[in-house]
């Protein structure tokens, strides 16, 4: 049996000491899948993601990533984290950004050069390689940030709203890339408030007010709620919770 990518048990996080951002979240996320963390803004998506990458202190429960406590030093070369803000250096060129983050993972010299060429190709940024990030458009910046997340082929990629504000063509291309990565064994955890993107995921986690509303494949969730789209499922689940 393979070790799941992420296991949380009774995870509880309070932000600012009192506001409950996550309330008793217990989930198991399998390896090699695209896991969508879906929910409205303020549902706890970013908090859950930060707990998984080890940046969030929690007040109860546990988080394990590949069998190790979240944030373990051993995990740092195996996971990547793309934050909601761009988390790349605006005053560096695309290549300089990639070179620096390569060095953080111990990839230097000729190996870094090769890695950077591949990454630029993957996100289709070869022509803009020597541009300062501050001069790029929003979508191009997103792609640079994504390229940084791809460095060193991490086993787990955690992406916070990676497609927000992108044009439909680019979004479609990124989802193709994500599917390709998952096929090759990468686990992707993708937070999104866009319900229409949920259909691309293998596994969905619907969050609301810091709690898990539902967890399952898109098809399962639709079947369970007898609806046609994830958005309708979500609404149905919220309504039934209120009624109960």
């Amino acid at each position: 049996m393979t070790i799941p990518a992420v296991i949380t048990k009774n995870l509880t996080v309070k932000l600012g000491g009192s506001t409950v951002a996550l309330d008793d979240v217990s989930i198991t996320l399998a390896e090699g899948k695209i896991i969508g963390v879906i929910g409205p803004s303020g549902a706890g998506k970013t908090t859950l993601i930060r707990a998984i990458v080890g940046r969030q202190a929690f007040h109860g429960g546990s988080v394990e990533v590949f069998g190790l406590p979240a944030g373990s030093a051993k995990l740092r070369s195996r996971i990547s984290y793309m934050t909601q803000s761009l988390s790349v250096y605006a005053d560096l060129t695309v290549t300089e950004n990639l070179r620096y983050f390569c060095a953080m993972l111990g990839i230097n010299g000729a190996a870094a050069k090769k890695e950077i060429a591949t990454l630029l190709d993957t996100v289709d940024m070869q022509k803009l390689a020597d541009q300062l990030v501050s001069r790029l458009s929003g979508g191009q910046k997103q792609r640079v940030s994504l390229a940084v997340s791809l460095i060193g082929a991490p086993k787990l990629m955690v992406l916070d709203e990676p497609t927000v504000g992108l044009d439909p063509v680019l979004r479609a291309r990124l989802w193709t890339l994500f599917k390709h990565l998952a096929k090759n064994g990468t686990t992707l955890i993708i937070a999104s408030h866009a319900m229409d993107e949920a259909e691309h995921c293998n596994d969905l986690l619907l969050l609301r007010d810091g709690r898990v509303l539902a967890h399952g494949s898109p098809a399962d969730l639709r079947k369970q709620t007898k609806t046609d789209t994830i958005e309708q499922s979500f609404l149905h689940l919220v309504k039934s919770k209120v009624a109960a």
């Binding site: 250096y89 953080m104 940084v148």
Partner: peptide, 14 residues
């Protein structure tokens, strides 16, 4: 600290 780059770095082996 505010641009998220430190956030990202702290999940990396530095």
């Amino acid at each position: 600290r505010t641009s998220g780059t430190l956030d990202r770095l702290l999940t990396q082996p530095i």
